[in-house]
Simulated assay, not measured.
Amino acid sequence: MEALKNNKGKIILNKVFIDTASIDVLEMLFANFFPISIVSDYLYIYDRIVYYGYSKHFEESKEGEKVPEYEVYFTSNKKGIVTSIEFKKVVKQ
């Protein structure tokens, strides 16, 4: 994990997604994102869970910087099988 210590980020997932996603999708997600903290209490009313963690797909950030948020996108083939994952940094305006 030392190699990823500067590749921090957070993702916010809908609880319904977690409850209904296939094992293949969850395996792809958590093979590319390593959670270190999960926050669900304050977003419980919205059924969302915030995961803080590391990923090789995240931009490097310096110590003390605000942890950036990323959105997760999956790509499927014509048969509906998930073939790739992408993390896009959320830019707050």
Rank of each mutant, 00 (worst) to 15 (best):
N32I: 11
M28L: 15
V25L: 01
Y46C: 05
K88F: 13
S84M: 10
L4F: 08
I12H: 00
S76E: 14
V39C: 06
P68D: 12
N77R: 04
Y54E: 06
T75F: 12
K78M: 13
K88P: 12
F58R: 10
D19R: 13
E59L: 11
V50L: 10
Y73Q: 10
I18P: 00
G80I: 12
F74P: 02
M1L: 14
G9A: 08
T75G: 05
T75E: 15
Y51M: 15
F17V: 01
V39M: 07
T20D: 09
G53H: 01
A21T: 00
E63C: 03
M28H: 05
Y51S: 06
K79T: 06
L13K: 01
E69N: 13
D47E: 14
V72N: 04
Y73S: 13
F74W: 11
Y54S: 01
T20F: 02
E69M: 13
E86F: 09
F58S: 03
A21L: 02
T20R: 00
V39K: 13
E2G: 07
G64T: 03
V91P: 02
A31G: 13
S55I: 01
Q93A: 08
F58A: 06
G9P: 06
V16R: 13
I12M: 11
I23E: 09
L4K: 01
I38S: 03
F17P: 00
I45C: 08
S76M: 13
L29W: 01
L29E: 05
F58E: 01
S84Q: 14
N14E: 08
Y73V: 10
H57T: 00
A21H: 04
S84K: 14
I11Q: 02
E2Y: 14
E60G: 06
R48G: 01
Y73R: 07
E63D: 15
E63R: 12
S61K: 15
K15A: 07
V16C: 03
K66E: 15
E86V: 14
Y54Q: 10
I23D: 08
E69T: 14
L43G: 03
I11L: 03
G53I: 00
L26D: 08
K62F: 07
I12S: 02
M1F: 10
I49K: 03
K66A: 15
K5L: 07
I85D: 09
I81D: 05
Y54C: 02
G9V: 04
I36M: 08
L4P: 03
G9W: 01
A21N: 04
M1T: 11
F30Y: 10
I49L: 05
E27Y: 08
T83M: 15
K89Y: 12
K62A: 11
K92I: 14
G53F: 07
D47C: 04
V91R: 14
I81H: 09
I45T: 09
V72K: 03
N14D: 12
I18A: 04
P35W: 10
M1D: 11
D47G: 05
E69R: 15
S37E: 11
I23Y: 03
V50W: 00
K88N: 15
P35N: 13
P35Y: 10
N77G: 06
L29F: 05
Y73K: 10
I81M: 06
F74E: 14
A31Y: 05
Y70Q: 11
S76D: 10
G64M: 08
H57F: 07
V67N: 01
K78P: 05
K15P: 00
S40N: 09
V67L: 09
G80P: 06
V91T: 15
V50G: 00
E63W: 09
Y52F: 11
I23P: 02
G80F: 11
R48M: 12
